[in-house]
Design a protein around this nucleic acid. Structure first.
Lengths: 334, 334
DNA sequence: CTGTTAGCGCTTTCAT
DNA sequence: ATGAAAGCGCTAACAG
């Protein structure tokens, strides 16, 4: 292994000089700087990460905290794209990322505690937003920098990266109204998520503007349940003309259920969903969807945490990533 | 930060003694061992990872190398589950994982080189198998331990974790033959993948046994192309009774295309796919699929690399993860 | 602009 | 069974 010492010897300077050119210190003569750099290249020098971390206490890695690590969450395109965005941005700044996905809150809590104490990470990105969250509290108390992807909690001075889900839902619903829909159903996954609440709010708002009645159903992420749900609607003759789902995965289940019940889209019913993805874009049929740009959410989170760990101040704590509607075959003019 | 020194002072022993109980050294009296352990717990001691790595040159992290990092690959459930398996297993051994996904081979190559030289990782898992691969060659040359998920390359002394894809395809095809199918089409993604070749081999073998003619088409992962493909089949009146796809993502596209062409599954055509996932299980309609157990592939890879980095010998270089057929609505007795 | 010095927290001979 | 001492590769005062 070639060390800072080796290249110091070869360049006839002291290790500290080498260290200085490494950190881009200004007050090194251009000649020595270039010479040292040349020798580093020649000898294929790689700085030792551990040694640097040991002394600076900067590990150049960011922790990512997820709540659940179950199969559905893992395979959710939204999460994957967010992670990809974070990864890209951190990598660009020469930072590594490390994920924590515990089954239980306590498990995550101790792991996070360890990471902090052993200086394994410099900051965290939380992939969820929750009031009075034990992990967030821990981070705050230990004053470890972190940012949250999700809805801002008003009394907190923490950077939140989010979409305007109320607006997004409102725009989608308005658009569907222009298509001629009057009979809506919003299918939402169970679980008391803030995002879902916001989307329902926006949906209701748009319907109210048009003097239409909202219809919202919370349902389990279970194919059989969804099939019986639609069976009931058919029997009661209360099938809406459009079903909006709160996420791709739920949408996929709805499409599967409708297929089984031989209800044709968009002829007999129409569908639209939040969280556009490869799957919804290539579903049967391709779905009209709200693209919330998860990749950008991740990138913005990465940028923010990079700023925080390098001591920069962020004055806008509330970063909003724009959304847009992608119009596909699952909806059409009535 | 509480160091080994602090707890040495508190226990009235030397740092080296503390270090010894930390590493489970035998020749420490049971009394001091217990006392030291107690104090470590009381003071909530966390070993400093960087310091340990600096001296031992063991980073307790494993590198994961992927070839492509595009959206389709990222969102492919197969990859996700493999990664999850690796992560789980490494975590169980107190190892972290770090991913590398470059756009170009050279980018990955330099990154891997860096990781090795700076002792950032102890070993690698390659998520692909390729003859005469530059990265594999680099690892071999520097004698960094690695395992690969994919087809064994015969003249190599490297642990490979794989399914028996020939057998899996053979079993699936045989099963479909028992359903009464005689007119097959195997739709494979373009790209010269060894897995795909094996699956086609098994498929052909089973058809040959039954004196049936194979029909194999390589196609781009593009919805429009697939639609025109099926249009052509309809026009030529050569629609098979069953379409087998080489992966979930391709299968999803086929379902979308068939939906558009209003060809009903399983009534007018049947479908089956490799690489079962949440998506194929809940598709329109749910797909008969070969579960290749990606989670287990990942776990086995994790186990193997753990063994290698701790210096254990692995005598069986060829680890086969069993597969099984999941029978769903997309196929039925003809 | 550059060198000297003193560690960061840990492991590991070499003693005893 | 335990301690003393050296040093992993790097950075950061401090000193010129």
């Amino acid at each position: 292994m070639v060390t800072i010492r080796d290249i110091a010897n070869a360049a006839n300077v002291s290790p500290s000089t080498v260290s200085r050119v490494l950190s881009g210190n200004r007050r090194i003569s251009i000649t020595t700087r270039e010479r040292v750099k040349q020798i580093m290249a020649d000898l294929n020098y790689q700085p030792n990460h551990a040694a640097r971390t040991l002394i600076t206490k900067k590990s150049k890695t960011i922790g990512i905290i997820q709540k659940q690590g179950d199969k559905v969450t893992r395979q959710n395109p939204f999460i994957i794209e967010v992670l990809s965005g974070i990864y890209t941005e951190c990598k660009r700044h020469d930072y590594a990322t490390i994920s924590t996905t515990g089954e239980q809150i306590n498990e995550i809590l101790t792991e996070v505690q360890q990471m902090i104490q052993s200086h394994a990470v410099e900051g965290f990105i939380l992939l969820y937003s929750k009031e009075n969250d034990a992990i967030a509290n821990l981070l705050k108390q230990q004053s470890v920098p972190y940012v949250v992807i999700g809805k801002p909690i008003n009394h907190e001075k923490i950077v939140h990266i989010d979409n305007d889900n109320i607006l997004a839902a409102q725009l989608l619903t308005r658009y569907l109204i222009t298509l001629g829909h009057t009979s809506f159903q919003f299918l939402a996954e169970l679980g008391d998520y803030e995002v879902v609440k916001d989307r329902i709010t926006g949906y209701k708002r748009a319907l109210k503007e048009a003097h239409l009645k909202p219809n919202t159903v919370f349902i389990e992420m279970n194919r059989q349940q969804i099939i019986s749900h639609f069976k009931t609607l058919i029997n009661e003759n209360t099938l809406p003309t459009i079903v909006i789902t709160s996420d791709t995965m739920l949408n996929q289940l709805v499409l599967s259920a409708l297929y089984e019940l031989k209800i044709a889209i968009p002829e007999e019913i129409q569908t639209a969903t939040f969280n556009d993805s490869y799957i919804s874009a290539n579903a049967a049929p391709p779905q009209t969807a709200v693209d919330i740009q998860p990749q950008l959410l991740g990138r913005a989170a990465g940028e923010s945490i990079m700023a925080l760990v390098s001591g920069n101040h962020i004055d806008d704590l509330n970063i909003i990533i724009p959304t847009h509607i992608v119009n596909r075959r699952s909806t059409q003019k009535l």
